[in-house]
Simulated assay, not measured.
Amino acid sequence: MLRRATAADAAHLTALVRRSGAYRGGYAAMVEDYEVTADYIAAHEVFVAEADDGALLGFYALLLGPPAELDLMFVADAAQGLGVGRRLASHMKDQARAAGLSGVRVVSHPPSEGFYQSVGATRTGTVRATGAVTWDRPELVFALEPSTTARRRLGEGLIR
């Protein structure tokens, strides 16, 4: 099940980020102090994938911008390979289309680039290492066609 994240999810999402197996070794410094706060959840489009028993399987955070950006996407290590990431990516694209967006930028964790390409993103460049991030990161974009509702609202001047 996918649902909108709430403030009560903040600690669980923070733990999911910090425990991610994708950020072990040289990548660990990027997430060791990372925190998903209640304020962050309230300010952005944050959705969680939840198992029938209530366990959080993954989440994403879409920043509507401009520019629109997929800021976070994490899948619990135990849920890797079960289609959770694909479902989150599909939902994110639907949300972006409904908001009238024509594209969503992703600055990817290097090992995740192939996943983003497999769900429709195209590499557009490289973001060079700066500050605490000591590695170059792939930059990608999801090019989107607006939904029928968004096209109608665009035509009426209701959204940008």
Rank of each mutant, 00 (worst) to 15 (best):
A7Q: 09
A7N: 11
A10I: 15
A11C: 05
H12I: 00
H12K: 07
L13H: 01
L13S: 11
A15K: 14
V17Y: 01
V17A: 12
V17N: 03
R19A: 15
R19W: 02
A22T: 06
Y23E: 09
R24H: 04
G25D: 13
G26M: 07
A28L: 10
Y34T: 08
V36G: 03
V36A: 08
T37G: 01
T37D: 04
A38I: 08
A38P: 11
I41D: 10
A42G: 12
A43K: 13
H44V: 02
V46P: 04
V48D: 04
E50P: 04
D52H: 09
D52N: 06
D53E: 09
G54Y: 09
A55W: 00
L56T: 10
G58E: 14
Y60L: 11
L63R: 05
L64N: 09
G65T: 01
G65Y: 08
P67G: 08
M73E: 09
F74L: 07
F74V: 07
A76D: 15
D77W: 11
D77T: 00
A78C: 08
Q80Y: 03
Q80K: 01
G83P: 02
V84H: 06
G85S: 01
R87H: 01
R87I: 05
L88A: 02
L88G: 11
A89Y: 00
S90F: 06
M92A: 08
M92K: 03
D94V: 04
Q95S: 07
A98N: 10
V104A: 07
V104T: 06
V106S: 07
V106F: 07
V107F: 12
S108A: 15
S108L: 09
P110V: 08
P111L: 14
P111E: 13
E113N: 08
G114M: 05
F115T: 06
F115N: 00
F115Q: 11
Q117H: 12
V119P: 10
A121S: 10
R123D: 05
R123C: 08
T124G: 11
T124K: 00
T126W: 15
T126S: 12
T126E: 14
V127C: 09
R128H: 10
T130N: 05
G131Q: 09
V133G: 04
T134W: 01
R137M: 13
P138N: 00
E139I: 01
E139F: 02
V141E: 04
V141S: 00
F142R: 03
A143T: 07
P146K: 12
R153N: 09
L154E: 07
E156G: 11
G157A: 04
I159P: 03
